[in-house]
Write a protein that binds this DNA or RNA. Sequence first.
DNA 1: CGAGCAATTGAACGCTGTCAACCCGAGTGG
DNA 2: CCACTCGGGTTGACAGCGTTCAATTGCTCG
Lengths: 254, 254
Amino acid sequence: MEALLSAIGRNENGQPALHRFFDHCAGDGALREELVRIAHVRGFSSGETIVGEGEESGLVGTVISGVLRVQKTMPDGRQQIVGLLFAPNLFGRVFSRVSPVAIEAATDCRLCCFSRIAFESFLARHPAVEHDVMLAVLDELDAAQEWMLLLGCQAVQEKVASFLLMILRQADAGGRPRRRRRIVDVPISRHDMAVYLGTTTETISRTIQDFARRGVLRVINPQRFEVLDVAGLAFLSGRVAEPGDIDEPSRKSA
Amino acid sequence: MEALLSAIGRNENGQPALHRFFDHCAGDGALREELVRIAHVRGFSSGETIVGEGEESGLVGTVISGVLRVQKTMPDGRQQIVGLLFAPNLFGRVFSRVSPVAIEAATDCRLCCFSRIAFESFLARHPAVEHDVMLAVLDELDAAQEWMLLLGCQAVQEKVASFLLMILRQADAGGRPRRRRRIVDVPISRHDMAVYLGTTTETISRTIQDFARRGVLRVINPQRFEVLDVAGLAFLSGRVAEPGDIDEPSRKSA
DNA sequence: CGAGCAATTGAACGCTGTCAACCCGAGTGG
DNA sequence: CCACTCGGGTTGACAGCGTTCAATTGCTCG
């Protein structure tokens, strides 16, 4: 039981694994006890499906380690990744019988799982925790809208640059606070990157090699790059005004 | 006060204007009284900004009539509409000081507005209502993910067809239950359509004329079409398997 | 060592964005 | 009543980006 408790309390990077729930549970032993009673930690290996698209949404929970991909598929097989979930994100569709998206393990991973029904009943009994879940959902909505901007009006170059920057931020924010080692570990395959960015593996590959040729980054191996010019990458992402640009809304002293 | 009450209770189509909140308010006079006290109905004309992108998110509320567009803009001016809000949808970013998106009137419209702060404090006092807000946010997330599938992997033809079908569903579900008159009233300009679909006005125009040439629809005027072949449109949207398709995941006997 | 998969590279086609001209209805003023 | 203007919509020509198809390389695993 001790192992489970600590697994729920902290993930491998020392991050709270229950997301914001931990805030409440930490100060309330009974609450935490109750949560632990309905939780179970499960491992999934890369490629496994946690919840199928359009299927009964039986499981919800949080990511302890690894990466989940949230994706949708069209009748003819084309697919789009609509989100990536890192620790300590929530996964699963609460308050809906069916999940409109598939949730799959993009890497080997460990999840803190709850039966959706049990979790919902827990939330009903603890509005403060439900409030935290809402905040998490709102964050996810923000992220989705951000990604729609990328899908809708960025060129492939900009998409790839934005993606790499996102991974970089993710690594900075998440566990290891190695300060700006500029090493990007892409936790997913080229194919997944392509599906996430709404393009193809070939184009991704070309773009990355192009970045390397321009000296923006160095390819250590297909999943691992060193960013040589963060500002350059940011510029290529199209998300920042270029140096000589006079459009930046916030404090440009120069 | 009577006018305000009824305005909040019902919109012009007889739909509940307070979304699901009405469910609780209807059975609880005091709750409704309290809500009315902090609500105010405001009209906005097409093009007006309700909340700016990255600005203080002071207003939240619901759409009584008209259409709002939720959009994001890149530093260089490119923009993407990440959502359209019809009655009785919620608008505004609760529980965040700044709004990551701009909210603008796509048509003349009437809104039931609350100060975000006052609304949040109302929610804090009434968890059941907050729960309903969460359900609304979850719906919005589903819609966003659905739209990402469209932006990421549909061709322009499919995007336009999907959009028209969405408007058709919207009209069917919303107020007037005119059963399948197959008339599509596009409530937004070609430019907004283009920005929503992640393409250009020219391409939109070409595609619609093409649909007309193929006999799928008839153009009554630029904002008004008659759909002559709903099934055909659905097929063009790519969201349904074609009649002779043997790829449908469910029960393929062969 | 060979099989198999992921990643890369190459070549060619086509969708769709860009630029430009034109059409049309509404509003305006003579 | 008509000429003018203006904005939104439509149409045309064309080029470029990115997909598609195909071949090659490189790595992992049996």
